[in-house]
Amino acid sequence: MASDLSGRVALVTGGTRGIGRAIVLALAGAGATVFVGGRSAEAVEAMIAGSAVADRLHPLPFDVADPAAVKAAFMALQKQAGRLDILVNSAGVLKDAVIEMTSTGLMAETLATNLTGTLTCCQYAVRLMGRAGGGSIINLTSIIGRVGYPGHTAYGAAKAGVIGLTISLAREVGGRGIRVNAVAPGTIETDMTAGIPDDKRAALVERIALGRTGQPEDVAPLVLFLAGDGARYISGQVIGVDGAMAM
């Protein structure tokens, strides 16, 4: 079922690259007005300038790990658009480290961006969506948050936290017409995974039933569906987009 998002207002954090960028383009392609979040104002502007749907995109640079910046961003969005219908929490950081070398700083950064940032954005989104009578929140988690992976203790903890956040929030705000779901990608070709050595990449592909790594455009259609009315009875779910990957 194709989603028609004409008249809807969306915010995508981490919208300048990879999966977030593909989601921005998919939502705008379906008619939504999309606010593009990202830490770098230059990167946000460049992403919009290079897009074929630039007329539906608005820059909203902010760091999800900075609570004051999140607050300012949502206030700016409210002033500009007057409403929020769709939030996609796609901002994330991934740094490999075995448990003994997971520094306090790495833990803090990983949790602040991937988990606390998602939670803070959800807080403000719920308030704006509640005013409009409902909305859809889609949180990007990861296959690592569901089944784990060596060297990703902090990342796995954060992404598992996003799953817990999603299912609890879905139960809390369903009565206000707000749906909350999580999407759990497997190995997707983005800047975040570009550093995987060839031998490890080949080993990963062997674990994927569909025989290839994913592309950001493989993830975006699910987010588009969850954002739209076709998913009106779907909430509190965690849906994998991993090509049937066994970790």
Partner: peptide, 14 residues
């Protein structure tokens, strides 16, 4: 909270 935000043109945090 909503009324205060609308009336005074602010956004309150948690």
């Amino acid at each position: 909270v909503t009324a205060l935000e609308d009336n005074f043109d602010i956004m309150l945090d948690a």
